[in-house]
Amino acid sequence: MPLIELKNVSVRYGEIEALRGVSLSVEAGEVVTLLGGNGAGKSTTLRAISGLTKPASGEIIFEGKSMTGLGPEEIVRLGIAHVPEGRRVFPGLTAHENIMLGASNRSGVSKDQIDQEADAMFDLFSDIRPFQHVLGWTLSGGQQQMVAVARGLMAKPKLLLLDEPSLGLAPVIVSKVFEIIKEIRRRGTTVLLVEQNARMGLSVADRGYVLETGRLVVTGKPDELWNNEDVRAAYLGGHARTAAKA
């Protein structure tokens, strides 16, 4: 039984049909990457899973149970943590406080316990340890990304949704973020990763899906996808395809 399964999920934003009948699944322990250009529906897929957006039709099943009708606060309590696009670090709270709040979905944990766990996070994210008492809005993009991922891990998720962790980050920082994703994978957390940076996204994945204008077009192992022309086309457009052929 897959950990999570999307069955024919469609999402509309007013006039726009952002997802058109997407079906996919993630097995426990897997890292699965969703690829696709802007507006392909990658973020919408994650938003539908975490309850931020209500699907117009279709069903999402987590650990064998339908999540239809559940809101984001209930879904995160089931063990699905969503690290959204743009990081969304609370600007007026410190890095440490941001990370502590990641445990808000777990009941019956003492503040001291959370405090210690947050401290432990800085072992994995040692780059931001010096900034742990700095307000969120003053952190750089890379530091904010690390805070956001650490905050997501504090939920002790069964499934971690990562939306474009490389967004707007310099290559050296991107590599660091992906090192962390590999470490998360090693520790056995299931990850559904959305990435524009196809090479990086596939480098940590067991499997990948490619979305184009709200539909799944290709699925497969990282190597297969990397060599697939449709994947390149989804990113660089028809021009690159012809240019590459020529």
């Binding site: 809101g71 984001p72 969503h82 969304r88 609370f90 600007p91 709040l101 979905n105 939920a155």
Partner: peptide
Amino acid sequence: QDKEMASLLGIPV
């Protein structure tokens, strides 16, 4: 500061 993010973390907004 950010209601949507708060609800994603499980804070009952």
